[in-house]
Simulated assay, not measured.
Amino acid sequence: MTASLGIASVAEVTGLTQDTLRWYEREGLIPRVVRGSDGRRRYDDASVRIIQLIVRLKRTGMPVAEIRRFLELYEEGAASHGRRMALLEEHRARVAARLAELRQDLTAIDDKIDHYRGLIAHGLDCDDTAITDTDVLEQQVRTV
């Protein structure tokens, strides 16, 4: 990556649109962006990395208020490392809890899929009675 990127390049690197980057800037969701002598936004490597982190924080459900707080701390520099780390650790715990829930949900879905595969393989209905309608059986066999 070069030392100074325009908004189009940053949009490509971060997966955000240019309009979203502008909106994030207006809303205080990304650090202040330096402008070149031509008035255009110029992003350095550090800015791009923080935007990528913010995208991940948002995608993992960090509330906007916490993202703003993180950025306020970021602007304070090294003196806020401990507070930023604490904020990230709290968010990490929430994400880990959500992942555990999702793993359990995925297991339940997999179990239900296996259940239906077994029913279809044995030509059974949900109450374990044999399906006698040949059209239904043929349709189930085609979907397996």
Rank of each mutant, 00 (worst) to 15 (best):
L88E: 03
R69N: 06
P63C: 05
V48I: 12
R98Y: 12
L106Y: 07
E89F: 01
K112V: 00
Y74T: 00
K58Q: 12
R40M: 12
I120V: 13
V34M: 07
D45M: 06
L119V: 01
A100L: 14
L71E: 02
L119K: 01
R35Q: 10
R68M: 08
D114H: 09
R117E: 15
R84S: 01
V48R: 00
R49Q: 11
L99S: 05
G28H: 09
R117V: 07
E27R: 11
A97P: 05
L57T: 02
I51K: 01
G123N: 04
L119G: 04
G82R: 11
T107W: 07
V34W: 04
E27D: 12
L106V: 10
G82K: 13
E72Q: 10
R68K: 14
E25C: 01
R42S: 10
Q52H: 05
H91P: 00
V55P: 00
I54A: 00
R92F: 09
E27Y: 06
A86T: 09
A65T: 15
E27S: 12
V33F: 05
R49T: 06
E75K: 11
G39N: 07
I120D: 11
I51N: 01
R42E: 07
S37T: 11
P63W: 02
M62V: 04
Y74I: 05
W23N: 10
G36V: 02
H91F: 07
E101R: 12
D110W: 01
G36K: 00
T107P: 00
Q104L: 13
E89V: 10
L71M: 09
S80V: 02
R22V: 03
D38R: 14
R98L: 12
R59A: 15
R59D: 09
R56H: 10
L29T: 02
I67E: 02
L87N: 03
R32M: 13
K112Q: 08
R117S: 08
A46H: 13
A97W: 06
G77W: 14
R84D: 05
R98D: 15
R32D: 15
R92V: 08
R35N: 03
L53V: 02
G36W: 06
E89D: 15
L99H: 06
V34G: 05
A96R: 11
I113K: 03
R26F: 11
E89N: 10
D110P: 00
Q104F: 06
G36F: 04
R69I: 01
L71W: 08
E90D: 12
D38W: 09
I50L: 09
L119D: 10
L87A: 08
I30W: 09
A100K: 15
T107E: 12
R84Q: 11
A100E: 14
W23E: 01
D44G: 07
V48T: 12
L106P: 00
T60C: 05
V33R: 01
L57S: 04
L73R: 05
M62Y: 04
G36H: 03
E27P: 07
E90F: 00
L87M: 03
R98V: 04
G36T: 04
I120Y: 05
